[in-house]
Amino acid sequence: MNSMGLALAIIGAACAALFAGIGSAKGVGLVGESAAGVVSVDPNKFSKVLILQLLPGTQGLYGLLTSILILRKIGILGGSAVDLTTAQGLMFLGAALPIAIVGLFSGIAQGRAAAAAVGITAKKPEHNGKGIIIAAMVEFYAILALLVSILIINNISV
């Protein structure tokens, strides 16, 4: 059994969950700070700012999904790990990189956009939807990265 291949694949799965998770945590945290600021002045705006706070959380979910797909494909989740060559392991690691890297940066960027959009909700609550759209635009790139990661994982033959 080539343990190096398997180790590389597991590192890939870990990276997907880790970096995308960090991006989301930072993003959600930043929006949370803004949201808390608004709610401290006007508690009625809680539900509106909560939607914005959730937006940067998706990158972490995409990372988790990618991670599960890799772990399932290499048999870790089923309890019987597949024998992987080093090249295959590197392929899984490479497959994890798009969502890991894009997830990290887009989570932070979306957090900034959503925190700024909290300002719209704070001042003009009737335009809350516009703030959500502005912040959601960043999501597109995280989805693209997720798509690439999934396509690569599905096309690695084990």
Binding site: G37, V38, S40, V118, G119, A122, K123
Partner: peptide, 11 residues
Amino acid sequence: ASAVAAVKAME
């Protein structure tokens, strides 16, 4: 971030 959001609400 929190302070600015609170100020926007106060504005």
